[in-house]
């Protein structure tokens, strides 16, 4: 049986690279990514699973990293927004201005990327279903919607 107590040196596979980090079982994936690996793309928002600013991919599935323990990510692939450099989702958000203050943007890009990987022909209701997991407190939804549509067109 695997068990962890106190500080442990573990390996996490993040954005295609192995990272050796010293973590405690009580540390969330979000805090490890930001404070130990230095990836500040995933944002600290509500820390309650509501806002989606901390969204990352865990074995390809978008999850809210504030609700995932770091030890759960051992042996899995983690992708943050930094790992989506030059993807259609990133380009589309830049070109369409799919952000206002930008705090929620990383979560939206990660979720958009995951959606289009899983359902390239996603229809409007599928896009709404997936992206309602992310909140934009500036209410910049119109340009976010344009960015998602644009990313979908670029991928085809």
């Amino acid at each position: 049986m695997i068990s962890y107590s106190g500080y442990n040196s573990v390996e996490l596979f993040v954005n295609g690279e192995n990272w050796e980090v010293i973590i405690k079982p009580s540390e969330t994936l979000l805090s490890i990514l930001r404070d130990k690996i230095g990836l500040t793309g995933p944002k600290v928002g509500c820390e309650n699973g509501d806002c989606g600013a901390c969204t990352v991919l865990l074995d390809g599935q978008p999850v809210k990293s504030c609700l995932v323990l770091g030890v759960e990510a051992i042996g899995k692939s983690v992708v943050t927004v930094e790992g989506l450099h030059k993807t259609e989702a990133q380009k589309a958000f830049v070109e369409e201005g799919g952000f206002q203050c930008g705090y929620c943007t990383a979560g939206f890009i990660v979720n958009t990327y995951a959606l289009l990987e899983e359902i390239p022909d996603a229809n409007v209701s599928e896009k709404v279903e997936w992206l309602s997991s992310n909140l934009c407190r500036c209410t910049g939804y119109e340009n976010i919607q344009k960015a998602v549509d644009s990313a979908q067109r670029m991928k085809k």
Partner: peptide, 21 residues
């Protein structure tokens, strides 16, 4: 951030899990 510490166990079968609890 979680401010309390706890130990983490990942049993591999139901007996291990039940016995641990």
């Amino acid at each position: 951030m979680i401010s309390i510490d706890f130990d983490y166990y990942k049993p591999e079968n139901i007996n291990e899990a039940y016995d641990l609890m």
